[in-house]
Structure formats: C-alpha cells, structure tokens
C-alpha cells in the first residue's frame, strides 16, 4: 500500500486541515505505515460475516414528539468566538 503526497493533500482538504509541507511528508509516511499494518483486516477470516456497526443490540430507540425547551439559551452562545444579535458571526458567505 503506497500513499501519495497528493492523496494526503486531498484528504487534508476533505478534513479541512491546512498542513505545512513537513507535516504532509510526515503524515504521508505515518499513514502509509499505519495503513500497511491495518491492511491485515483484509486477511481476517470474515467471509460471509455481517458488519457490526456497533456492539449494541438496541433498535427502535425513539423519543416522544414532545417539546422540552433548553433552559439556558444564553449558555449556548457564551462560547461563540464572535457573535452579533444572538447569531454566530462568520466571514461573508455568498450563497
């Protein structure tokens, strides 16, 4: 398994990370090492086995359609890096 620098840069874009050149090199090597190791999952005797998305046997866990108002609305905005009229402020987005 070979990981290319270009792939790492593409993945960084998807993950919204801005990597420095030396980080790209390092992560390319790291990813290659780790993926080569992780590749053993492809040798595991799993033919015909279903996927376990979790270990939980629960299903149909639903909530009633009843309104509960979160009491401390102010606390939800207290961590905003920048806000204006109770909204989160960001650079202009052209839609």
């Amino acid at each position: 398994m070979k990981v290319s620098k270009e792939e790492v840069m593409h993945i960084a874009k998807l993950a919204n990370l801005n990597l420095r050149d030396e980080e790209i090199d390092k992560f390319t090597t790291n990813l290659e090492d780790i993926l080569n190791f992780a590749d053993i999952v492809n040798n595991a005797p799993v033919e015909g086995l279903t996927e376990s998305f979790g270990v939980n046997e629960n299903y149909n866990v639903f909530r009633k359609d009843e309104i509960k108002v979160f009491e401390d609305n102010e606390a939800l905005l207290q961590n905003a890096p920048e806000k204006d009229r109770n909204m989160f402020k960001i650079p202009k987005v052209i839609q």
Binding site: D84, F88, K89, K92, Q95
Partner: peptide, 12 residues
Amino acid sequence: LNHNEFGGGSLV
C-alpha cells in the same frame, strides 16, 4: 445564514 447588513459578514 443571514446576511449581516450592518457589521459585514454572515450570521448563523
């Protein structure tokens, strides 16, 4: 996303 007519930028 609302356009911020006063302070510039957008508001979420």
